[in-house]
Simulated scan of single mutants.
Amino acid sequence: MTSKFGTLNILGEALQPCSKDPMTGFFRDGCCETGPQDRGRHIVCAIMTAEFLAFSKAQGNDLSTPMPHYQFPGLKPGDQWCLCLERWKEAHAAGFAPKVKLDATHQIALERVPLETFKAFAAK
């Protein structure tokens, strides 16, 4: 199943789901879709690592602690998650960028990060 909006990924193909377990995406539909209400642009489908999760927590965005009141299970290494584009860029600059699922990363990400940079972090 691809994006219900007909959105393209950074490869110019139909945007693929990022994760349904845990359920991710700004709209919690499994895809890294975005819209006007998504100020953080949760459009990079990334595979969590312990190093990235520690980095994000140190930056004030704790992604590993469960928050049941938001139906957020907390992330662990290996989970796939729609990250904010700027958080991924920040992690990249600091040497903590997680791998990226290219087919599940929204094409808008190319406005701020070159395709070759994402390809260097492509999940195998």
Rank of each mutant, 00 (worst) to 15 (best):
K4G: 15
G6Y: 07
N9E: 01
N9K: 11
L11D: 05
L15T: 08
C18Q: 09
C18E: 05
P22T: 08
F26Q: 05
F26I: 06
F27I: 09
R28Q: 10
G30K: 07
G30N: 03
C32H: 06
E33R: 01
E33S: 14
T34P: 06
G35W: 04
Q37F: 07
R39A: 15
I43H: 01
A46Y: 01
I47W: 01
M48W: 05
A50M: 02
A50C: 01
A54H: 05
Q59P: 09
Q59R: 15
D62A: 03
L63N: 08
L63G: 06
P66K: 05
H69G: 00
Y70W: 13
Y70D: 10
F72Y: 15
F72W: 13
P73E: 12
G74I: 03
K76L: 07
K76D: 03
D79L: 05
L83A: 14
L83E: 11
L85Y: 01
L85F: 02
R87F: 00
R87Y: 08
A91S: 14
A91E: 13
A93K: 13
A94G: 01
A97K: 05
A97D: 06
P98S: 00
L102T: 03
A104N: 02
T105V: 11
Q107E: 15
I108C: 12
I108V: 14
A109T: 08
V113K: 11
P114D: 13
P114V: 09
K119A: 13
K119M: 14
K119S: 11
F121P: 07
F121E: 11
A122G: 12
A122W: 08
A122E: 14
A123T: 12
A123L: 14
K124A: 15
